[in-house]
Design a protein around this nucleic acid. Structure first.
Lengths: 202, 202
DNA sequence: CGAGTTCTAGACAGTGTGTCTAGAATAAGA
DNA sequence: TCTTATTCTAGACACACTGTCTAGAACTCG
């Protein structure tokens, strides 16, 4: 099924040009989102800013959305490891709590997210973020208080926590609320902890 | 500046054709969303299904999004009056709670919302819904427990409640969770009440 | 260096947009 | 009913973007 008759099993080292091209395209798109309406951005715009041929874009992506999705995923992969673990005693996170990481990240990329939430591009972001946060929270809660809740209740609690965390961040961001990421994380915990104590407390 | 020299001050009765045309277009769009990907729908598709000329569309709307937005707003105007009020004793809603109305409405329009959340059309819906819910909750809480919280804390609580309610509904809907609207509303209250008691309780 | 790949510039048909026309259909008001 | 103003219609138009394809240039890996 190879393109040549050559029966080589050696996988050729991934071509540097591909990585470079993809990075240029991703950077160009992010930079364009900060400048103008996402919906108005064309493939031509992206390749122009990246100084690449339009044909090159289609060599790697089918459309704008795919490029955006891949680019954001790389950003998230970068911050995921920073999230800390849960303390079963207090139902607070020790170390840097996931919520602090979230608020901090949002603050660091304020312009980008504000731009994205102005347009339809923010949609997939919202859905994916809630799913991702719920996943992280579930892992942590299950390690902290195993067996305290039924699977169904646990799942609903995780979705509840993810939704409120995400929604607060969205409100904080899009309304220019003058509070620090630390304060937001602390406030979130104050809102969340009564529920955690009631459900998971001994 | 009138098109005629006629100096008539009598405002002409709104032409029935406009209302009829707008309704036809709105119905056609909703019906198309249930059939196919929102992003794929063209103005031509909409006017074809409505049995109208494409030019007619541009007489009333600038694009698809505007039509969708106007159509959804009419739906929401229809259900808003059903929402009940808060009971200061228990921090539960008496009568039909807003959360039950929300879950019920989502259940009634399951296909539509599922279709919308599959595509970028859901974006504005998400933002607007959280804003709308927060507005309703704020009005109710302020009537229930005036002065218990600072304005800033109250606002954050409302956003928190709106986000978690909306997020739970989104999860319930898009993951085919086999629970009734009543059960969802009840579960939401169980999650929310500890926080309300802690913040607003005497 | 040489084989294999990725990138390039330009062209192409296809599709949807938004606007405009002149005329047909229809509603409102007397 | 009859008049007048408005709305709807069909079709045409230039324009923009898409997605694909080509032949050749540029580059990478071994």
């Amino acid at each position: 099924m190879s393109t040549t008759g050559q029966m080589s099993n050696k996988p050729r080292k991934p071509d540097r040009r591909i990585g470079r091209t993809k990075k240029l395209l991703g950077d160009a798109l992010i930079s364009l989102i900060l400048d103008q309406d996402y919906d108005q951005i064309t493939v031509q715009d992206i390749t122009d800013r990246a100084n690449l041929s339009r044909a090159t874009f289609y060599l790697h992506y089918t459309d704008k959305e795919q490029l955006l999705s891949e680019t954001l995923q790389q950003i998230y992969d970068g911050i995921a490891p920073e999230m800390g673990a849960y303390d079963p005693e207090t139902f607070y996170w020790n170390g840097a709590s996931p919520s602090l990481i979230v608020f901090q990240h949002v603050a660091d990329n304020r312009d980008l997210y504000r731009a994205m939430f102005r347009t339809h591009a923010g949609w997939k972001l919202i859905i994916d973020t809630q799913k991702y946060l719920a996943y992280r929270i579930r892992a942590s809660l299950e390690a902290t208080a195993p067996g305290k809740l039924t699977a169904a209740s646990m799942e609903m609690l995780c979705q509840y926590m993810a939704a409120s965390l995400h929604g607060l961040a969205l409100w904080w961001l899009t309304n220019d609320i003058p509070l620090s990421a630390e304060t937001m994380a602390q406030q979130y915990h104050a809102l969340m902890q009564p529920t955690l104590s009631a459900l998971l407390g001994s």
